[in-house]
């Protein structure tokens, strides 16, 4: 169960805003986390409480394919990102590295900055703890569930690689 407070964002939050290009030669996730959302709000990293949840409007993670974007959100302690939909590369990257994301229609309409939020990742239920509204996130396609179930794409790939080698 994920429970924390909401950090609210608008639409079209691009990966340059999540982590600026100038930091993309850093691979240490904890170092990256110090600069999360820096160009959006330089005080964000200092104020964000690990375990809290990002709720954004549509098209979260658009732009660059930089995997350091979901990596630094995860390292900063973002427990989940909830948005109506994600830009496709960000969506793949988040699943691949194990940053919990939830597609929730009109997500931004149901939450205000600082409100309490509880997410049941297995059931996909998202609750606004401040006003009690209970919502249902879009279920992941079966194939994605297989990747998540395997423990991420790398684990899935290891299994698949063995399968391919047995076929040869």
């Amino acid at each position: 169960m994920i429970e924390g407070n909401v950090w609210k964002f608008g639409r079209d939050i691009d990966t340059d805003l999540i982590i600026a290009g100038r930091y993309c030669n850093i691979s240490d996730p904890d170092e990256l986390a110090k600069h999360v959302f820096e160009d959006f709000d330089p005080t964000f990293a200092g104020r964000f409480v690990p375990g809290d949840v990002v709720v954004a409007d549509a098209n979260f993670g658009c732009g660059s394919s930089r995997e350091v974007a979901p990596l630094c959100l995860k390292a900063a302690g973002v427990a989940a990102v909830v948005a109506p939909f994600f830009a496709r590369i960000f969506y793949r990257n988040a699943i691949n590295i194990g940053l919990p994301i939830f597609e929730l229609p009109d997500a931004a309409r149901y939450f205000e900055q600082g409100q309490g939020i509880r997410i049941d990742p297995d059931k996909g239920t998202v609750v606004n703890l401040s006003d009690g509204t209970s919502l249902q996130a879009v279920a992941f396609p079966q194939f994605m569930q297989k990747i998540i179930g395997a423990g991420g794409l790398l684990q899935y790939a290891g299994e698949r690689l063995r399968g391919l080698e047995n076929d040869r």
Partner: peptide, 20 residues
Amino acid sequence: TGVGSTDVAVAWALGEVWLK
């Protein structure tokens, strides 16, 4: 199409990619 680094790593290993 563009992908992230983990997808690249997996394609290096498998020679394939999952796509919708």
